[in-house]
């Protein structure tokens, strides 16, 4: 059976996982900013009138 493995340092894999981590943080901040900027406008468009963005 394939034995339990102690993680070894692999720069390419670390870069791969780091890229995913960075993408997640950028998406959290980016979508948050977009929500603040365009949220109220989008809510008006979808609901009509003066509904507040939730």
């Amino acid at each position: 059976m394939a034995g339990l493995e102690i993680p070894t340092w692999d720069p390419e894999t670390a870069l791969l996982i780091g890229t995913i981590l960075l993408e997640a943080i950028v998406l959290y901040v980016g979508y948050g900013g977009l929500e603040r900027l365009f949220g109220p406008y989008l809510m008006k468009l979808l609901v009509g009138g003066d509904a507040d963005a939730r």
């Binding site: 692999d10 996982i17 995913i20």
Partner: peptide, 15 residues
């Protein structure tokens, strides 16, 4: 994160 790293070492993570 650790699981992804281990799978990534075996070529199991496709960006």
């Amino acid at each position: 994160g650790l699981g992804s790293y281990l799978y990534g070492q075996g070529g199991g993570v496709n960006l």
